[in-house]
Simulated scan of single mutants.
Amino acid sequence: MVATPTPGKIISYPAKTIARADIALRCAPFHLALFAKMRWESVSVPKLAGDLGVKSGYTRYPLSELSVETATSWLIQVGMLRREVDGQGLTDSFRLTPLGLELIEKWEQVGGVLPSASAIDRLKNLSARWFRLPF
C-alpha cells in the first residue's frame, strides 16, 4: 500500500517505510522540538550531546556524542534525516528529509508531542536495527 499524496507533496512512500520511520522516530531519544528546528536549519552533534541537548529541549536525557551519532545514524537509515554537506564534504550536522518533514508535520498537527513508543514498537525497532530488516 502506498501513502496517498497530499497537495504539493512530491514523494509518495510505501506504508511500511512510513511505519518504520515513525516507530524509529518515537523510539529515538529526541524531542519533537529538535526535528522542528531541523526543518529550517541543520543541527550539529555538539548541540545534541551532554546537558546542552537537554537544556535546549532536544533530548530526553544527556547523551554522549557516540549515542547521538548512533541514534541519528539509525534515523538516516530509516529515511528521517540526512547529513549536511558543505564544500569540504560531510559535516556533523543533520537535517530532515522529505519523509522526516512529513512525519514531523503529522505529529505537530496532533498535539505537538511525540508519543512514547509501545513495548511492541520498541521491540520492532530494536530488531530492525539489530538485523537491519524491514518490518
Rank of each mutant, 00 (worst) to 15 (best):
T6S: 12
P7E: 09
G8Y: 08
G8D: 06
S12K: 10
S12E: 12
Y13D: 00
K16Q: 15
T17H: 10
I18P: 03
A21W: 09
I23W: 09
R26H: 10
R26N: 09
F30Y: 15
H31G: 02
L34K: 09
A36S: 07
M38C: 00
W40G: 00
S42G: 12
V45Y: 03
D51V: 08
L52M: 13
G53A: 04
G53R: 01
V54D: 01
V54L: 11
G57Q: 05
R60N: 11
R60L: 14
R60W: 06
P62R: 03
L63Q: 13
L63D: 13
L66G: 04
L66M: 09
L66R: 12
V68Y: 00
A71F: 11
T72V: 13
S73D: 15
S73P: 02
S73G: 15
S73V: 01
W74M: 03
L75M: 15
L75Y: 04
V78H: 07
V78T: 15
G79I: 07
G79H: 10
M80D: 03
R83H: 12
R83S: 10
G87S: 13
Q88N: 14
T91M: 03
D92E: 14
D92V: 10
D92L: 09
F94H: 14
F94E: 02
L96H: 06
T97F: 04
T97H: 08
G100C: 05
G100W: 04
L101V: 12
E102A: 05
W107S: 02
E108F: 03
V110L: 08
G111M: 06
V113Q: 14
L114A: 07
P115R: 12
A119L: 15
N125L: 00
L126H: 10
S127Y: 12
S127L: 15
A128C: 12
A128S: 15
A128M: 13
W130D: 04
F135D: 13
F135M: 11
